[in-house]
Amino acid sequence: MSTRTAGRPGSGRPPGTRSPARGTAPGRGGGDATSSPVRAGAASPRPARARLVVPLTAALVGLLVGVGLGGAAPLPGGSGASPEGAPSAAADDPLAERVAELRAEAEERDAEAYDRLVADVQGLLPELTPVVEAAAVHAEPGAPVPSAEDAAAWHAVATEAASVLEDPPSAGTDVNVARAAFAASLVQLEAATTAFQQAAAGATGAGDAEAAMRPAVLSLQGAAATWSVGATQLDAVSVARDRGHVHLYLPPVSGSGALTADPEAAP
Rank of each mutant, 00 (worst) to 15 (best):
D93K: 08
A152W: 02
E210I: 09
A134Q: 12
A211E: 08
L69D: 13
A240D: 15
R98E: 03
R22L: 12
F182E: 02
A89G: 08
D115P: 01
L234N: 01
T3S: 10
R103Q: 14
H155L: 13
Y249T: 11
L189H: 03
L52E: 14
R116K: 14
L189N: 01
F182K: 02
P74N: 07
V164H: 00
P20Q: 13
S254L: 11
T159W: 06
S238N: 12
D115N: 05
D115E: 11
P76V: 01
S82V: 11
E264M: 08
V61I: 15
V99G: 04
A209I: 04
M213K: 14
S163H: 12
R28S: 10
Y114D: 06
T129P: 02
V65M: 06
V53Q: 11
E97I: 10
H138A: 05
A183Y: 02
V137R: 15
L218M: 07
A223H: 06
G16T: 08
L95H: 00
G77C: 05
A33P: 07
G80N: 09
V137F: 08
T129V: 11
S228L: 12
A261F: 00
V118N: 06
E140R: 15
G230P: 12
A161H: 02
V53H: 10
G70E: 10
D110W: 00
S185E: 01
A42Q: 11
A43H: 03
P252R: 04
E160R: 13
R39Y: 00
S2A: 14
T204F: 02
G244H: 06
A43R: 12
V187D: 13
P47Y: 00
P94L: 05
D32E: 11
V177E: 11
A59Y: 01
G230H: 09
P14V: 06
V187N: 12
R4W: 10
D262A: 05
P215F: 01
H247Y: 12
R4Y: 06
D120F: 02
D92L: 11
N176C: 09
G68E: 10
A191F: 01
V175R: 04
E190T: 13
A106N: 07
E133T: 14
A48S: 13
G70Q: 09
R214G: 07
G202V: 00
W154S: 02
G41E: 07
P47Q: 08
G70V: 09
A211D: 05
A183G: 03
M1G: 14
A6Y: 08
L128A: 01
R179Y: 02
R4E: 09
T193P: 04
A203E: 07
S11F: 05
A216R: 04
V38M: 11
A266V: 13
A181G: 04
A261S: 07
G222W: 05
A135C: 03
A72R: 15
P14G: 07
P9R: 10
